[in-house]
Design a protein around this nucleic acid. Sequence first.
DNA 1: TCCATATTTCCATAATCCTTGAATTATAGA
DNA 2: TCTATAATTCAAGGATTATGGAAATATGGA
Lengths: 117, 117
Amino acid sequence: MDERQALSSFAALSQETRLQIVRTLVVAGPEGMAAGAIAEKLGVSPSTMSFHLKELDRSGLIGQQRESRSIIYTANYDALAGLIRFLTEDCCAGNPHICTPAAAVACHSPSPVEKKA
Amino acid sequence: MDERQALSSFAALSQETRLQIVRTLVVAGPEGMAAGAIAEKLGVSPSTMSFHLKELDRSGLIGQQRESRSIIYTANYDALAGLIRFLTEDCCAGNPHICTPAAAVACHSPSPVEKKA
DNA sequence: TCCATATTTCCATAATCCTTGAATTATAGA
DNA sequence: TCTATAATTCAAGGATTATGGAAATATGGA
């Protein structure tokens, strides 16, 4: 992931509705969710939803595919993983020696998922 | 890190100059860097730099401390790590079973740092 | 073909963000 | 105290972003 893409991804995630869209699609899984269903779930108008979905699509964090009359949106896990990696490298990669313990935890330990399990 | 803080952090990182400030401070390490030095390095005016530093400070991604006439800014590694964790949990935690291989790499594998070493 | 559904695009408005220059505050030294 | 340095704050502008309603596009079924 290059800087331009990262900037675009951060911008996409910096808006409450869009962050909730991403969360919703991550939870929805590979099956995804229709635009209207997301709009209803989050309580925003169709045109506003369309605006935000387009923004997320342009940033690459989600994808879309038409299915009959609906357009199904799905989270792009690769892009999310790429963004995490970008952030991780900016945090530690160039200078692991200056990482504080907390930063080191994020960079070198088992993930929170494993800790919770 | 709660959602409000995450939104604020994403907004802070979604602006080119601010992202470069964070990068610069991460590289600078715990010693930090004076506002003027960052401004000169990045080629922006003092007031613009001040505006962005304040924004980053409000989001918690950087900290400041006066040293004689200068104000020294430092990256907040804990906050960066917290943001990485927030993103990681949104990506995988609630539903590790739907992680694609690429996402799983970001969530469960050794960090890129270790791979590069 | 006609109608209903699902979504997007267009438009106008309101809000927020970014930048700059001028004025202000804080510190240090002569 | 006076001057220089280092930053911030303020005010004004131009640019971008967010929202919702109305109109347009695409699909499927009677």
